[in-house]
Design a binder for these strands. Sequence first.
DNA 1: TGTTAGGATGTTAGCGCTAACATGGATCGT
DNA 2: ACGATCCATGTTAGCGCTAACATCCTAACA
Lengths: 365, 365
Amino acid sequence: MLALTWIVANEVALVKRRVSLVRQRAIASVPRTRSTAAQPVRMEDVARAVRVSSITVSRALNTPDKLAPATLRAVRAAIERLRYVPNLTAGSLASNRSHIVAVVVPTIANSIFAETINGLAQTLSQQGYQLLLGQTQYQVEEEAALVDAFLGRRVDGVVLTGVAHARGVRSRLHRAGIPVVETWDLSARPIDMVVGFSNRAAGQAAGRYLIAKGYQSLAFIGGTDDRSAKRLAGFREVARECGAKEVSAVLLPASSSPADGSAAVAGLLAKKAPRAVFCSNDMLAAGVMFECARRQVDVPDRLAVMGFADLPIALGIEPSLTSVQVHATEMGQRAGELLLRRLAGDAVRERIVDLGFAVVERASA
Amino acid sequence: MLALTWIVANEVALVKRRVSLVRQRAIASVPRTRSTAAQPVRMEDVARAVRVSSITVSRALNTPDKLAPATLRAVRAAIERLRYVPNLTAGSLASNRSHIVAVVVPTIANSIFAETINGLAQTLSQQGYQLLLGQTQYQVEEEAALVDAFLGRRVDGVVLTGVAHARGVRSRLHRAGIPVVETWDLSARPIDMVVGFSNRAAGQAAGRYLIAKGYQSLAFIGGTDDRSAKRLAGFREVARECGAKEVSAVLLPASSSPADGSAAVAGLLAKKAPRAVFCSNDMLAAGVMFECARRQVDVPDRLAVMGFADLPIALGIEPSLTSVQVHATEMGQRAGELLLRRLAGDAVRERIVDLGFAVVERASA
DNA sequence: TGTTAGGATGTTAGCGCTAACATGGATCGT
DNA sequence: ACGATCCATGTTAGCGCTAACATCCTAACA
């Protein structure tokens, strides 16, 4: 008896629901509880206009080659006429594909990361993917919060900067089961994939270069982040091996402006001045050189200056800046390609892509 | 008869559906057609663990102050224990709020836009909004495609660069009925709101400044985009009014690197060299000054150089660069604040926010 | 001419969440 | 003691789309 009444009650609900589906939208909207959105045209409205079912409209948008040419034309015309804007949120929910990739960088104000994002965005946009941007401002803990938010959005992939992550980031990304690319460093045990170069090796190369040039007293100006620290470590290793003096280091948190470089070198020059300085960023190096110009400290004769990243400014300044070139844009492109291949279902063999780096000799060191 | 069989058929379907709802998830998943996602914990799983309904879990996440403290604690514990990651896509669909704001810039490789995005992102993230990034690469038509895609995602707001837009952009945004902020320029008739400064007035100010300094022969180096063109227009107006010679202009598409500045000034110096040059971007100005240094053209005695945007490098280079300061970060922050206020339902009175600019006198002009 | 394959289109049943309304119980004033 | 009020929680009904399966129709072949 109970079961019977229950079924009857629901039968009524069911009928009501069917009716509202069959009715015109305007009429059906009367008993509706929710407020009418500003964009009321739905796939079904287009379908009704063309007298097809909504799945046909869906196919016109997603797999147009599965439709008869005439149908496709008619649907497209109706879409245009009704100014239908497909709701990708609903599509994402139904298909479990968001077509969004998240990227986490320390800050886009530093143009090296901007270049990587550029490469990534260009590659992804070719396949209709869009970029959700997160900045940590060099606060490691921010990364975890960003990753949580991104996973909540069910992004299809994640691109991270560096291989040292906040607690829990690794496991959460693993559990989510989406492709992940780490960049701007290398790791023998990436979360999933990694595209970058060895920061330690880059530091070593810079050290070897300067020592081969005959400079014995070395200094380092850089940041406090993991990658800069690795460059310093490599730099110091080489210095130690080659019997150079202890490397004095100036570490500035989250800095990449010329002014920081100027201030840092001022400090170095005040003490026993080094013969050569390796800067973790070309902007810092530029600031060092501007400061030297102001103090009439000749570069490279009294102080050799070496930069990192090989930004456009390295070629511009006088004397031109010796730097370490790192393929920032390509890093983003390769990261994007790896993601796209994984998202297309292809297996990716090379999960560790070493893009390398190159010491570019110019006039400053 | 037909109606009867129809109801019977649907009754069966209905009963099946109820059953699967009541059952344990694992059992219910057997007749399921869709593949089980990598992240199978749903709100309902959490609710079942705490023996509450799923709306209570929803409230724990969205309006925690509406729950009894004990319930809230229990729900939060279960969320933690089950590692539940809320599906924001589903939430967006149901609530018609995506908590995503889209931003369109020509390119983030130009650090002035990166600063604006930084300010915007910081303001928005305080309220849990995230940024979807689109770059036009200075291709005006790209803007329309990006806006379409963003509207499809039902972003809650849009931030655009400039006030000149691709065909259809204005009307589409209007129709979507979401808050829109234009930046980096001003307009008497914004799409919705605008935060920026008058590029024409900035060009005029630069012209007046240089003329007041006694320079009569002026040149301009800049881009082909709308905003750069407006600066040039203002610059020329003033020159004409003041009886200065015709301003020669070098326009480079989508450029902002020192190398472009160097090349441009090389061209100017080869002809009848101007006495002062106004660059639409500090990076271009820096390139101009580097080239002057290489050619031993004294700045400002033989060529005065004025930049635009007042980037960190303006203070760094020698001689320091006279420039026009424009509050890039604040522009992003204010844009974010306006959006947030509108998204909170507050009316916004000042739909046109003129942040102004300031000529900063330094050594180069 | 029946059979079958394959292309075009349709039907059903959710995806996981939240708005709106509903309910039930405690608290309060009168 | 009774309703009014309020707070905590629940029920219902979708949001707008797509996966999976179902059906229909045409053409091609035996």
